[in-house]
Amino acid sequence: MKTFQLNTSFLLIATTAFLLSACGSLEQEIDLSLPDHERQLNVECYIIPELPIYFLSLTETVGFFEEFDIPTVSDAVVTIQYMGQTDTLQNVNLSDGFPLPGGDTIRLFIPGAQELYVGFRTAPNNFDSTFTLTVIDEKRSRKATAVTKMMPLISLDGMEAQFNDEGEAFVLSKFTDPPGVDNYYRRILKHKVPLLLEPDTIRDNMGQIISITGDTVWVNEIDQEFTFDDQLQDGQEILLGTDFNYVPGDTVISFLYHIEKSYYDYLVSTDGAIIANLSPFAQPTRILTNIEGGTGIFTGVAISVDTLVVR
């Protein structure tokens, strides 16, 4: 069965767009006074097996009309505890670069992030251990905690392309949902595109040189992203389809994230809050978070990836 994302969001946006298509200049800026917002710690951290480093973003929530740039919290004590070990993460400024355990210094480009807390440990493929996060912001008397577990990997079973008469292809990815348990997924599909850059030495995010003299690099651009659960497809083979977006020679990369329910709820509720601000038909909702004493997400994620060159 194919999974198509026709959901409430789509209909609300379509309805809104349809009704507002006649509005034209009927939109105007207004003065609006909002009540004070009490700032909270906003945590974002993903524990991913096999990745030799983990990152944590620590920012604050702000009043809607307060300063434009989201403030980061640089002086908190951040620890992650699992299997009897406690790692204290260090705060690093991404633009300055930071040293790896081997002595090399790397600079990371992470869209929207100026600084992160990092820890150097390869998260194990251990599904029983609990990871416990503690964030202490002593200066502002705030503390945030969360727990998560590593998710077992659910592998993609393959990809294939099918063509129409115009020579355009859609791509199918498939996997089998484990029966008898509630599973939650995030699907991301990328394809390789050339990126024009000034001549320079280009390194990827792990410091590997990917281009020295050329001015074009190949990067993976996102085509598709959504979350779903297995309520209607428990234990079945699930097909994930696309539109006829591809031509022979395209490289398509399919990602399947097996995620916790708390992460699924967080993604759905944040999407819902964004849509509610833009649609008069949507019911605003609160953000569902697993962070005690703050907001955000601390979660283990297992990612399966597959690549297809369309032919």
Binding site: H37, E44, T59, V62, A113
Partner: peptide, 9 residues
């Protein structure tokens, strides 16, 4: 009344 930020890294 407020906003938060997801980097989604």
């Amino acid at each position: 009344t407020g906003r938060s930020f997801i980097s989604d890294f």
